[in-house]
């Protein structure tokens, strides 16, 4: 598996969590959704590795919605 699920954020974890919240402040629900999607696309491009992104997608999808196949 090429997806890293170990900690990789150094000392920046709490800061990034806070900044993520601040970025969403004052947005409508749709705008929030758009922010998240832009972020995902930007980060996916940064990651570059298709296998890792697919693995992340699979983990993120777990437990959501009706049974998927």
């Amino acid at each position: 598996m090429s997806l890293n699920t170990e900690w990789n954020l150094g000392n920046a974890g709490d800061e990034i969590y806070t900044e993520l919240i601040e970025a969403h402040a004052g947005l409508t629900e749709t705008e929030s959704r758009r922010l998240d999607l832009r972020l995902i696309l930007l980060l996916a491009n940064q990651v570059g590795d298709g296998a890792a992104i697919r693995e992340a997608l699979r983990l993120a999808r777990e437990g959501l919605g009706a049974s998927r196949q």
């Binding site: 890293n4 699920t5 170990e6 900690w7 954020l9 974890g13 709490d14």
Partner: peptide
């Protein structure tokens, strides 16, 4: 919910 399975998310729990 991620923290139950994936170590990285545990460090975000505060």
């Amino acid at each position: 919910s991620l923290a139950e399975s994936y170590p990285f998310a545990r460090r975000l729990v505060n």
